[in-house]
Amino acid sequence: MFDGRRVLPGRPSVLVTDGRIVAIGNLEPEGVPVHDGRGRTLLPGLIDSHVHTFEGSRADALRFGVTTELEMFGDPAKLADARRRRKSLQQTRESDLWSAGNGVTVPGGHPLGTDWEFPRVQPDTDLDAYVRDRIAEGSDFIKLVYEPGNPPDRPLPSLTAEQVRATIAATHRRRRLAVAHVEKLRLWVDTVRFGADGIVHAPYDAVAGDADVVVLKRSGALVVPTLSVVDWGAGAKSLLADPRVTDWLSGTQTYLLDQEPPDRPDRPDFLGIASANVRRFHAAGVPILAGTDAPVRANVSGASLFTELEHLVRAGLSPSEALTAATAAPAEAFRLLDRGRVAVGRRADLVLVDGDPTHDITAVRAIRTIWKNGHAVDRTPTD
């Protein structure tokens, strides 16, 4: 049993009542269903710390053991229902959702092509009022975009440094977390200096120097590397070749995983650079959280978290540390205090897998049973 931080000694059992864990130990309860876990590992429900949801994606996530998702930009119209559902212990076929709702960005800036209109920051926008309005419409935390000049062939406008500072300050006045979309190292370090609580991509244009790592470590900011976004489809190909995964994919997931990123033979080694940064950050003790940025660039809710965990292990995390990055660490960082651990009093979001992913991280693909709120999840794919 991996409790989110460590493997518990012996072969303890978990007793679940009314959707919560009520006891852990050498239990022999009478009158309740018993599930045989011999040769398997019990994990907390997984948490993906960077997604963008759409109709059906939360069901796709849950079928692969991702019981909670943190959305880094999304339509606020769905947030009231998401908040109601995540408080419930009733049976469900969807992951629970926390969301930034509308992010903080400028006209013409990232992201492009959203299917809903939302207010964007103008030069004279009162950012304190802007942040207040985002929280009023349901944002659980604030996500801002600081990415001038990206992509290179179509430079995008962005918030100014002063607007980034003001957004973070306004967020902190309301005791919420401020996280940022930043991909380039120079801006990345600046955003950490400005007080961001986390950056939801690892820089992939340059490897951080010692001084950069010191700034990050001292800030206490977390990092969601999203290495799956820069692996250029390698993770998707791996999933599509694995029957432990393909048998449970929806048509939507298969379609998205099958999308080939555009051929760019002269592109830098984005994955190598970003992974080197993760290795440096992790060695310095920076909190690393697992996130996929699904459905961006051949990533999907649920299954792509497996490849993200594998990327984290290749970047220097142990398998147990990678599992923590998808369980206890995001629960603590985002104050989700009823989940992320196998512990008495926690919500019974649990995943049973064949083998031992604390030694072989790929074993997390071999899901035997998922429980959400103490109820077994039907893994039949739907569209």
Score class of each variant (00 low, 15 high):
9 P>S: 12
11 R>A: 14
11 R>F: 12
17 T>D: 11
25 G>C: 12
27 L>D: 01
40 R>E: 12
40 R>D: 10
41 T>W: 07
54 F>H: 13
54 F>V: 06
56 G>P: 10
61 A>N: 08
79 L>D: 03
93 R>G: 14
93 R>M: 09
93 R>L: 11
95 S>R: 01
95 S>N: 02
96 D>E: 13
96 D>R: 04
103 G>K: 04
105 T>F: 15
113 G>Q: 12
118 F>S: 09
120 R>I: 09
124 D>A: 11
128 D>V: 06
138 G>N: 04
142 I>M: 09
149 G>A: 11
151 P>E: 13
168 I>V: 15
175 R>E: 15
180 A>L: 15
188 W>K: 00
194 F>S: 06
195 G>Y: 04
197 D>P: 01
209 G>P: 05
222 L>E: 02
226 T>N: 03
230 V>L: 07
246 T>N: 08
248 W>P: 02
271 L>W: 10
271 L>S: 06
274 A>G: 13
287 P>K: 07
288 I>M: 12
298 A>R: 05
299 N>P: 01
303 A>Y: 01
304 S>T: 05
307 T>D: 05
308 E>G: 02
309 L>R: 00
323 L>W: 03
326 A>W: 08
337 L>V: 09
346 R>L: 09
346 R>N: 04
350 L>G: 00
355 G>R: 14
358 T>E: 07
361 I>M: 02
370 I>A: 00
375 H>G: 01
377 V>T: 01
